[in-house]
């Protein structure tokens, strides 16, 4: 059964248009001209209990807005969201306080921890806000301290923590009250390789042992490869793809790339036809060919006899990163 059901969800931001030119700032104060941006445009999806879903899209695609709508922080322009629960389905913005106890939220770009207080104070405060009984708080904190290695900075004021430490603190705060649903908005942004691995390991563990359902936005596709079986790809507020990670690669990159370096004299120009494949010159002098997954690469090799000698050849499998890069580029150019 679906835990989250999103139907035709739409959010339009309206803001006063700034007037350019002479006395622009002053005229802006009195202008009535509005600028409308559709951040989320009639999207539909649903997420089952126990899933870890990667919510991807270029900057400004509408990811954060969606998360804020799902958590009930923002009020949508139209459409609806239902989160299943023991007391029946809940619409986030209508029953925000009730839903709040069942969701954990981490926004990588900001922190819910109290900047001026030692980290542990934020935890006791969160426990009180979410009414966590003392024994459960003690056992949860012990588990989180171990998993996220919080002990070295548990009594340090949050403002003195490194980004990685702060993020671990934020994750702990978000899971202190055992929410069955976790929204992570760029939880690994700005973290080093080791800190990223700690965060990923922790999310994986929470999903496996705690059955926590996770919706994750990120620009680091290693997060997705490590954690998610399913991807929701959005851009300009619309869902471009909803399905398995492998499916995305197969659908949007049904080819592999072959890099070829030629011996001796190089052909003129930036394009080269070889065995019926068209190649483009790379910066390093190699030639890049796209070969369909069912097309035989050996035709390229066989073509080598036609005057060009192949010195070096490598096949690059399309992966999530290359596909997503390609998709973002197409969207931007188109």
């Amino acid at each position: 059964m679906a835990l989250i059901t999103v139907r035709q969800l739409t959010k339009e931001y309206v803001r006063t248009k700034a007037v350019q030119g002479r006395f622009g700032t002053l005229r802006t104060l009195f202008t009535r001209e509005k600028e409308r941006t559709l951040a989320v445009d009639h999207i539909d999806f649903s997420i089952d209990e126990g899933e870890v879903v990667g919510y991807l899209g270029p900057n400004g695609a509408g990811k954060s807005t969606t998360i804020k709508l799902l958590t009930g922080v923002l009020w949508p322009t139209s459409g609806t969201v239902e989160v299943a629960g023991p007391g029946g389905p809940v619409v986030p913005w209508r029953d925000r306080q009730n839903l709040a106890r069942r969701i954990g939220v981490v926004f990588g770009q900001r922190s819910q921890l109290w900047w001026d207080l030692p980290l542990i104070e934020s935890f006791t405060l969160v426990a009180a806000l979410y009414d966590v009984p003392a024994p459960r708080y003690t056992s949860n904190l012990a588990r989180l301290r171990k998993l996220l290695e919080l002990d070295p900075f548990l009594h340090t004021p949050v403002r003195q923590l490194s980004l990685g430490q702060r993020m671990r603190g934020d994750l702990a705060a978000a899971l202190l009250y055992d929410p069955p649903l976790l929204y992570l908005d760029e939880p690994t942004v700005g973290l080093d390789v080791l800190a990223k691995e700690t965060v990923r390991g922790f999310v994986d563990e929470s999903n496996r042992s705690g059955r926590t359902t996770v919706l994750l936005t990120t620009h680091d596709l290693a997060d997705v490869e490590r954690l998610c079986r399913r991807i929701l790809l959005i851009d300009h507020g619309r869902v471009l793809y909803d399905g398995a990670v492998d499916g995305l690669v197969a659908r949007f990159a049904p080819y592999q790339e072959v890099l070829v370096r030629l011996d001796g004299d190089q052909p003129d120009g930036d394009r080269l036809d070889l065995g019926g494949f068209s190649g483009e010159r790379e910066h390093d002098g190699r030639w890049r060919f796209r070969v369909g997954r069912d097309e035989p690469v050996h035709r390229l090799l066989a073509a080598a006899g036609d005057g060009w000698q192949i010195r070096e050849l490598s096949v690059v499998e399309s992966n999530l990163e290359s596909v997503v890069k390609e998709l973002y580029r197409e969207r931007r150019d188109g």
Binding site: T71, V73, Q109, R110, S111
Partner: peptide, 14 residues
């Protein structure tokens, strides 16, 4: 201004 209000609004309290 900083957007931290997002946390205040997502608390289980008014």
């Amino acid at each position: 201004r900083s957007g931290e209000v997002v946390f205040d609004i997502s608390r289980p309290l008014g």
